[in-house]
Design a protein around this nucleic acid. Sequence first.
DNA 1: TCATTTAAGTGAGTCTAACTCACTTTATAC
DNA 2: GTATAAAGTGAGTTAGACTCACTTAAATGA
Lengths: 224, 224
Amino acid sequence: MSATAPRISREERIAEILQAARELFSDKGYEQSSMAEIAARVGVVEGTIYKYFESKRELLLSVLTHWYEGMFGDYAEDLNGIHGARARLQFLIWRHLRTLRDNPDFCRLTFNEFRVEKDYHGSKLQGLNKRYTELLVQVLEEGMQSGQIRNDLPASLLRDMIYGGIEHHAWPYLCGHGKLDIDAIAEQITGLLWQGIPTQNLHTETQRLTELATRLEQKLDSAS
Amino acid sequence: MSATAPRISREERIAEILQAARELFSDKGYEQSSMAEIAARVGVVEGTIYKYFESKRELLLSVLTHWYEGMFGDYAEDLNGIHGARARLQFLIWRHLRTLRDNPDFCRLTFNEFRVEKDYHGSKLQGLNKRYTELLVQVLEEGMQSGQIRNDLPASLLRDMIYGGIEHHAWPYLCGHGKLDIDAIAEQITGLLWQGIPTQNLHTETQRLTELATRLEQKLDSAS
DNA sequence: TCATTTAAGTGAGTCTAACTCACTTTATAC
DNA sequence: GTATAAAGTGAGTTAGACTCACTTAAATGA
């Protein structure tokens, strides 16, 4: 009765398992998904999965890692066509939001399982995430060097405020509640940051101009 | 051989269980803690815990809820003694950071288990969290009404940027890596926000004064 | 073409930990 | 003192991650 699964290559089978696991994890979450169900979807038996993945947790990390690698895509390339710190910053924020909007289930999974310290710290996934967020840090530091962005705040803090803020803000949407207007939010966040980020300071700038005006007025008075 | 546990009142037993569960969850995390070990610490048998808590998950939510209720304390009261939107904002940021710094294990647990959508949305815990973050929203909205804070950004977005940013930034510390200089960070975050938040806009203000200076200069030139 | 080897696939079984329930025991009320 | 309510028990059930000795299809090589 039990039809045995057709034999295919290691690579194909791994791809199938990753695909099925990704769908199930995204759909039901990590804890709620069972290895048995993943196996059933692939059309093999549980033991087969353990031929390719040491544990359920390793399978999850593989799923996340594969997705991450695919997602990088042309981020850096797209960025090349955009000039000016503000525009580049807004692009990265918008692009991040777009990823969240287009893959809510998967991003929820990622955020949920990302941090579980035990196996995340020092993992390949952490490396990928670091590489991903490093793009933003670079943009910020370029902006600091070119004088467009104030340099009295660590870029890492700004990075955390941006990604942390976005994650928090998008969470209800990722859980299926409400909409995510990515254009408006990208605009708002950039607008918020931008007035905080520029090198120029409101007070010194105002002071400079006030002094200038006063000087002119004195000249005017003495001339008349 | 098996000494039976001394009989104590329902309330006392619940308090004991909550205490033991809190310690164990904080120490080892939710998944890594077993009901058997919690029971052993209290000195009862597993079944006893189920007399008072329907499930492990409900026990966790109770632990978190109890801590939250205790933590509110005199937040609102302290806030009464502080005036000015900036100072009030900085206080709330600093106070939040202080809580993270003083309870890293517990806060890590909270952040890890908070979001698991299934039982969080609509729970008592969500209500408490909402009440907690509402304090910040109120401070922001007061600031908007008094003209100290720009009102073209939703307060909820600012709230998310602040709490999300802090959570992200503190995460390594909560996991035992590095320090958390709460005074410096509170100062930096407030500094970042404050230049973004004021009603006055750097660009329009600068522009206005530049025009004024130019006008005066022209007058001066034509007079001489 | 057939024997040998390799590796994909199997499924029964182990183990752990959450959860259940019929029962026992202690304290309190009358 | 007996009845009763409630605290506590512990042997069991169940679910799901993980193991391993085994089977069998395919590839290899004479």
